[in-house]
C-alpha cells in the first residue's frame, strides 16, 4: 500500500531510494522547484507505510487550443516497489487532474521504445503511439541515443478523438520543438 500525496521540496532530501536507480535522472534543483511552483497538483508521490518514498510522477499542462494537454514529464518507481500498481495509480491521478481540473484534450508522454514494460503499461492504460520522434533521447554514457514514442490518450473533452489520430511519419526534434 502507499500513501499518495503532493510532492514537496523537502522530499528532495530523501528521494534517493527512487533516484539511485540508474535509469532515473536526477535533475537540477530548478527543474523540480519550477514544476512545484507551476503545477503543484501534478507532482505527486507515493510513500510506503514506513514513510519511504516509493514512486513519484512529475506532470504539467501546456499547449494552446486543441493542443491543450496534460504531460507526463517523469514517472519513476523504486526498484523494490515495481509491480504494485503504483504507476497506474499515479497516472490515474494525473489523468483525473488533466480532465477534471485542467480540462485538457489529451494527456501525452515520451518513452523509450526499448522500455518495453513501460510501453506495455501505457498501452494497457489506453495510450497509443501518436508519433515517433527521431533521436529524441541523447546517449549519456549509461543510456543510448534512441528515438522516442510520443504516446497519447484522449480525454473526454476531445469528443472527436482528433488528438489521437497517429501521424504517418516520424518527426525530428526540431519539428517537435518548432510546434
Amino acid at each position: 500500500m502507499s500513501a499518495l500525496r503532493r510532492f514537496r521540496a523537502m522530499d528532495l532530501f530523501r528521494f534517493n531510494s527512487v533516484n539511485l536507480d540508474r535509469f532515473t535522472e536526477t535533475y537540477d534543483l530548478s527543474f523540480y522547484l519550477s514544476y512545484l511552483s507551476q503545477w503543484p497538483d501534478l507532482f505527486t508521490l507515493a510513500e510506503s507505510a514506513d514513510g519511504r518514498m516509493m514512486a513519484y510522477l512529475m506532470g504539467k499542462v501546456e499547449g494552446e487550443g486543441a493542443d491543450w494537454h496534460g504531460h507526463v514529464t517523469a514517472l519513476t518507481v523504486a526498484p523494490e516497489c515495481r509491480r504494485l500498481g503504483l504507476a497506474r495509480g499515479l497516472m490515474s491521478g494525473l489523468e483525473d487532474a488533466s480532465e477534471k481540473t485542467h480540462d485538457c484534450y489529451f494527456v501525452d508522454l515520451f518513452v523509450r521504445p526499448s522500455n518495453a514494460a513501460a510501453v506495455r503499461l501505457y498501452e494497457e492504460l489506453g495510450y497509443i503511439v501518436y508519433r515517433q520522434v527521431l533521436e529524441y533521447y541523447i546517449g549519456d554514457g549509461v543510456m543510448p541515443t534512441e528515438n522516442a514514442y510520443d504516446m497519447r490518450k484522449a480525454m473526454p473533452r476531445d469528443t472527436h478523438r482528433r488528438s489521437v489520430v497517429p501521424l504517418e511519419r516520424p518527426i525530428t526534434v526540431e519539428e517537435l520543438l518548432g510546434g
Partner: peptide, 17 residues
C-alpha cells in the same frame, strides 16, 4: 523559484521552499 511561487499563486510552496 520562491518568487515564481508567489507569481504563480502556488502559495502552499512558499513555506516548503
Amino acid at each position: 523559484e520562491l518568487e515564481a511561487a508567489y507569481q504563480n499563486g502556488t502559495y502552499s510552496n512558499v513555506r516548503d521552499f
